[in-house]
Design a protein around this nucleic acid. Structure first.
Lengths: 134, 134
DNA sequence: GTATAAGAGGACAAAAAAGATCCACAAGGT
DNA sequence: ACCTTGTGGATCTTTTTTGTCCTCTTATAC
């Protein structure tokens, strides 16, 4: 239960690689993939997610590649995880058959909400910079 | 990411049904399934899990069925979830390709450990009795 | 002791999600 | 033009989730 997927793991590995490069240095998918031991084509998709949410910037053609779009100190672990896994959402909720659209008559709803907030708080409190300096 | 499965939801619904029955009253799978809107055969499996970990007791034959093995006040949400989903484990860990058997050289490990502890603490703090009284 | 009424356990099937790959295309550099 | 590198879509495989079925065991009732 409640497990980070491979995609999430790969995402973290990938962004840590970028965070460890000298400022302004671009890296190629292949290079990141090899160093992080992540399947190259899969990592390419992950990097696209990063670009889409503005965590990473990319450029094409010769001399192109990827680099962080902001300093690693300003990227939280939560952003990285959510970029590839979507919003943290431990519930989906129960009781009766209802889709449980917001608490009404669902006793467990508040518990999951609390869990969500805690996880978010923890992940928001960790920056990629901290993690990158091992 | 980090989502409770249907099985977990069904498990909670099922045990809440049992918790709402008068002390000593046994319930049939079919009855619990219908009231909780859970597929009967699937619920049967879930109840087996409960029996295996000692949360619920069962008896066969005429007049048989299921009932809580202990008062609902002494059953935590965590026990229910773990009975069907296994231990709460948000990581599986990263960095390099290693299986990451315990922290050595894995910067994110402590973060997942913290997440795990928080979730466990929250779920341990909620009893089925509380949830059952709606 | 035979019929009946449960749950137990295993095998299996369908559907969904995760994990991974490929290819045609776009954009930038030489 | 041609090469290099990312983009986006389609597709494929594997694993996990979700769900069913069938046979066996245990217990009660007649």
């Amino acid at each position: 239960m409640m497990e980070l997927t491979r995609k999430g793991e790969y995402a973290i590995r990938g962004i840590l690689y970028l965070a460890r490069q000298p400022r302004g240095q671009v890296s190629l998918v292949g290079e990141i993939a090899e160093a992080s031991e992540v399947p190259k084509t899969f990592l390419a998709k992950i990097l696209q997610n990063f670009v889409k949410v503005g965590l990473v910037s990319s450029s094409r053609g010769t001399g192109g590649g990827f680099m962080l779009a902001r300093p690693a100190e300003q990227i939280t672990l939560r952003e990285v995880v959510e970029a590839v896994e979507g919003p943290i959402m431990p519930n989906r909720c129960l009781i009766g058959a209802g889709t449980c659209e917001r608490d009404v008559s669902c006793p467990v709803h508040p518990v999951w909400e609390k869990v969500r907030r805690e996880i978010v708080a923890i992940l928001d409190g960790v920056t990629i910079a901290e993690l990158a300096r091992d």
